[in-house]
Amino acid sequence: MTIRVWGYTDEYETERQEILGAVDRVFRSGMLVLGRSVADFEREFAQYCGVEHGVGVDNGTNAIVLGLRALGVGPGDEVVTVSNTAAPTIVAIDAVGATPVFVDVDPLTCLMDTDALSSAITERTRCILPVHLYGQCVAMDPVLELAERHGLAVLEDVAQAHGATHQGRTAGSMGDAAAFSFYPTKVLGAYGDGGITITRNQETAAELRRLRYYGMVDRYYVESTPGHNSRLDEVHAEILRGKLTRLDRYIADRRAIAARYEEGLADTGIGLPVLAPGNDHVYYVYVVRHPERDRIIAEMSRIGVELNISYPWPVHTMRGFAHLGYEKGSLPVTEALADQIFSLPMYPSLRREDQDKVIDSLRTILSNG
């Protein structure tokens, strides 16, 4: 039986009665769209993150799109971010008509190299979009200082870091706004797509609410710039409300799994995750590195262990973004990482015996290399 890099079925069996109860409560409520479940979840999730406002949307990509639009980013603007991220980060920037400008990443943490930020700022820069990757935060003080100096907005991409902290501050609470995904694999995942954009600013929140509902303030009347149909649905919101009460437990389970990997693989030659200073990691994915990555993945697959690569193609190397003009070698650290990184199975319900097989198999493959 294959050991998956991610799975939800064991977790579902444990939580099944509560999940079905959540569905039943929504169906019996008489309100299927933008009802009490969404409103309650928005408030509870924002409070968990330490901010005042949350606006539930249909997916994490639109959480970024609407976040950018609410912060005034649009055609002709530049957004400074990284290429070592999932493509939706950059798709969202393109969707508002802005241009992504990439900086390289730190070779140890794989996070935005904040020392490179100042050289990427131009007169067209409107926003910095740090990606809290793999489960830990970008060092935000340099980002915030540079943004204040140049009058820029900061939108955090927290799709992979629900509950992570940096110097005691929760991911998503440090910038002007923050975008989250609730895709099923996430640290806090729904049973389908979902997302939220959070902010401390009441005006930004009001703009987000308008934009996610066609641009309407009152029903049937578009007030100014048209928005989208980007609403989080009631069923997912109610399921997420229950899962939010267990988020800290999910994170503790992930950290325990990470600790076992660290102990079991410490002397194998695999490059293990590096915790950045001031961070608490939530291990959305457990990303390691090795120069023989492709051989390792192939051999593990043959014995029934599924691994993944997050991500095999830096965004600036994709044909769909060739128009941005980045040549091979322009982001050397990002490109080098893409040839070596891979992810081990990581999810709260990963069985101890399955993790032991992953560790033992890796040790055998590497010792025979």
Rank of each mutant, 00 (worst) to 15 (best):
T268I: 01
P291G: 10
D339N: 11
E353T: 07
T364C: 09
T334A: 15
S367D: 11
I270G: 01
R254K: 12
D294H: 08
Y250V: 00
E335R: 04
Y347K: 05
A276C: 06
P273F: 02
Y311M: 15
R319W: 13
T245M: 13
I359M: 02
D360H: 14
A338P: 01
Q355R: 08
A259C: 06
D360I: 02
K243F: 08
E327V: 15
T268Q: 02
V315L: 10
K328S: 13
E353K: 07
G329Y: 12
R249Y: 13
T334N: 02
K328P: 07
I239Q: 06
L344S: 03
A258R: 06
S310M: 11
I257D: 01
G269N: 08
S343V: 09
N368I: 00
L324C: 07
Y261I: 04
T364S: 14
I365C: 10
D248F: 04
L337K: 07
I297H: 01
H316W: 05
R363D: 02
H316T: 11
E306F: 05
H316G: 05
K243C: 02
A338L: 09
S330Y: 05
E262N: 11
G269E: 09
I296A: 08
T364I: 10
P348D: 06
G269C: 12
P345V: 02
N308S: 13
V358Y: 00
L324W: 05
L275C: 13
E292C: 13
E263C: 04
T364Y: 07
G271S: 13
S330M: 08
V287F: 00
P332M: 10
R289E: 10
H281A: 07
T245V: 14
L350N: 00
L350D: 04
R295D: 13
T245I: 11
P273N: 09
V333H: 07
G329R: 08
H323G: 10
R254Q: 15
Y347G: 09
I341K: 07
P332H: 09
L337T: 04
E327I: 08
G325T: 13
P348K: 03
R351G: 02
V282T: 04
T334S: 12
L244R: 13
E353H: 11
